[in-house]
């Protein structure tokens, strides 16, 4: 596994840069905060992802920010389509954590 990542880093012209997908790979098993194109944000434990950054998340909270306030939806396990993702915050605790 570690050797695999080293190969990926070595294959680049500039090995000092931090590869985005490599960073997400390191987050597997820990909490991740996904900010979507819409006014939604998803926080969950990352179980895995693919090339499109479709993700399987466990113990999920879905935050929807509206003019009235923030709605929270709890889900057990989801497959999140990568096409809606704008930003990924490793270890992020979501809008509540950021606000605190």
């Amino acid at each position: 596994m570690a050797a695999n990542l080293a190969n990926i880093a070595g294959s680049r012209a500039n090995p000092s840069t931090l590869l985005p997908l490599e960073l997400i790979d390191k987050c597997i098993g820990s909490r991740i905060h996904a900010i979507l194109r819409s006014n939604k944000e998803i926080v969950g434990t990352l179980l895995g992802f693919d090339d499109y950054v479709n993700m399987v998340l466990d113990d999920v909270r879905e935050y929807e920010t509206t003019a009235e306030g923030r709605r929270v939806n709890k889900l057990e396990r989801i497959l999140l389509n990568g096409s809606n993702i704008v930003m990924l915050v490793p270890g992020g605790e979501g809008p509540e954590g950021a606000a605190a």
């Binding site: 985005p20 997908l21 960073l23 997400i24 194109r37 819409s38 006014n39 950054v53 920010t65 509206t66 003019a67 990568g82 096409s83 993702i85 704008v86 930003m87 990924l88 915050v89 490793p90 992020g92 809008p95 950021a98 606000a99």
Partner: peptide, 19 residues
């Protein structure tokens, strides 16, 4: 309609290219 909240600190993030 989905006007964002105030400026907030996120730290280290990955931005998706397609977006």
């Amino acid at each position: 309609p989905t006007r964002s909240e105030e400026k907030r600190e996120l730290g280290l993030v990955v931005c998706r290219g397609p977006s």
